[in-house]
Amino acid sequence: MTAAIAPVPPNAASRPGAATLARTVAEHQWRDVLRSRWVIAYALVLFAAAELLLRLGGSGPSALVSLLNIVLLLVPLVALVLGSASLYGAREFTELLLAQPIPRRALFVGLWLGLVVPLAGATVLAIALPFAIERAIDADTAPALALFLVVAALLVAAFTSLAFLVAVTVHDRARGLGAAILLWLGLGLVYDGVVLAVATALRDWPMEKPMLAFMLANPIDLARTLLLLRLDVAALMGYTGAVFRMAFGTPAGMGIALVAMLAWVAGPWWFAARAFDRRDF
């Protein structure tokens, strides 16, 4: 072996900033994510669903209403499972990255963006492309579709934050994935039934305020109400949504729901980031 080059003391002055480091991690992560079979399959399923609904259902808004139910179940499931599985699966590489000169928070931001950007991008494209292909974007559809895409992206972000929160706080991989799936079952499927049962059991009491709290406490409920307010299909809104509209009316209600969605992205994100900063690996 030729004479090795002597070790170089690190030069702190020329170190890149945290934002640059986070972007480096994110860019490589999303390259990895976009090549994942699961993400490609997810995008194809969503694309096929939108395409099919447009061909069968005809008009843009009615296709969106049908697509809503698919998106409300599929997007949280995919973000929760991929989000937690990717953190658990990359544990060894994350440890290697933590041993590199990068602040923990920058790494966390990079990992989160590295998943949210490609997943949200795939979601938006898979929904929007069929509308473009089928020339279904008219004056009626365009604003509704735009809101739909925003809400879908927010769902991706919120549930990726929740997935990260689970994966960072639950050490055991099997338990963590179990918790993520339970969270999806709870918020996506069981929640409405429980709310209805509570409302029925307590029907002699004033339930408007608790119902509003119930709705704000579930990002899937929020997303549904937000879109149905815009699409003006009160019949599909469910109990919490109907109460919500009575309480706030359409424009204010949409504003409140949008802010609450953002809180669902930022809240779990903040707790997950804090836990990531403090955690022993």
Binding site: P9, T24, R31, D32, S36, A90, R91, A99, P101, R104
Partner: peptide, 29 residues
């Protein structure tokens, strides 16, 4: 974080992002 620029680490069970090439992993680091 900057102190870790002085450390090289070879873990017991190395894992890298499955869908990246080796060159991409090196480029990232």
């Amino acid at each position: 974080p900057t102190a870790r620029a002085a450390i090289g680490y070879m873990p017991q069970a190395p894992r890298f992002p499955e869908n990246l090439t080796g060159h991409e992993v090196l480029a990232m680091l």
